[in-house]
Design a protein around this nucleic acid. Structure first.
Lengths: 135, 135
DNA sequence: CGTTACGCTGACGTTAACGTCAATTCATCT
DNA sequence: AGATGAATTGACGTTAACGTCAGCGTAACG
């Protein structure tokens, strides 16, 4: 159904907006497993699914190492409850981190806005003085 | 008024919770300018003010290089309107970045929560099956 | 058969912000 | 005087996720 053919490295790069180096790097890190036609890489549907998950994981802020472990567990999904729980726990921990990060960010934004307001008033005064002396 | 004495590197480290390496690094990057008593560093009130600003800047997510530029302008605060505007603009740009980052984070959190819910239901099914087969 | 394009494999480079370690100096404590 | 404890400089190490470059093979075009 979902285009089942193998894809070349270039097609992959165009499809996912990554560089060849990135794909080779992910292969070296055992995140994807392209087959070979002679020496050239061929990416299967499975590789594409994994790459999609990798990129999503990155958006979530997971490290590649985290992602590799998650993918490994994802493979034998359901086969081992304990492992699934590990995945679940890892994701929840990450979620907690992200929420904390979000809160810190929100606070920092608020602080920075205050500074900017202070600054704006300072600037207004200077602008006034300048205007006055120019008048 | 605000304790005007010079401080040793150790006092600084204790006061600001940084390592000596950090202070030396900041000096090398020309963010602070401790005097010398023989070969030993002595930090003035000015250094302390700057360090405080540096650490705040880091909380805001500025790079040290950004911070250095901001401090330089801060020094001649008010003396040059154009420079003040530059500072202001830089801070606003950073604010925009942070707000975008915050929004992306919030979205990623939402996505991740959905995944976790999906996962939780999957797990419930497995748990059920296991319970059944155990019964 | 020459060249142009693409792919492959090492292997070293990059960035930020320090950490870590060695060799040395200096002052103080005993 | 010897030992102990801080400080200093210089230099290399670290981490993540690739970027970049050299040197090589090969496949198709004309």
């Amino acid at each position: 159904m979902t285009t089942d053919a193998m894809m070349t490295i270039r097609e992959m790069c165009d499809a996912f907006d990554v560089t060849p180096r990135t794909l080779r790097f992910y292969e070296a890190k055992e995140l994807i497993f392209p087959k070979r036609e002679g020496t050239k890489r061929l990416f299967s549907r499975r590789d594409r699914v994994r790459l999609k998950l990798i990129l999503r994981g990155k958006r979530f802020g997971f490290s590649l190492e985290d992602i590799r472990q998650l993918l490994d567990m994802y493979d034998r999904e359901g086969s081992e409850r304990a492992q699934y729980l590990t995945t679940y726990k890892l994701a929840q921990e990450r979620l907690a981190q992200m929420e904390q990060q979000r809160d810190e960010l929100i606070e920092a934004i608020a602080e920075l806005k205050v500074e900017l307001n202070d600054g704006a008033e300072l600037y207004k005064r200077y602008a006034n003085e300048t205007t006055k002396s120019a008048a």
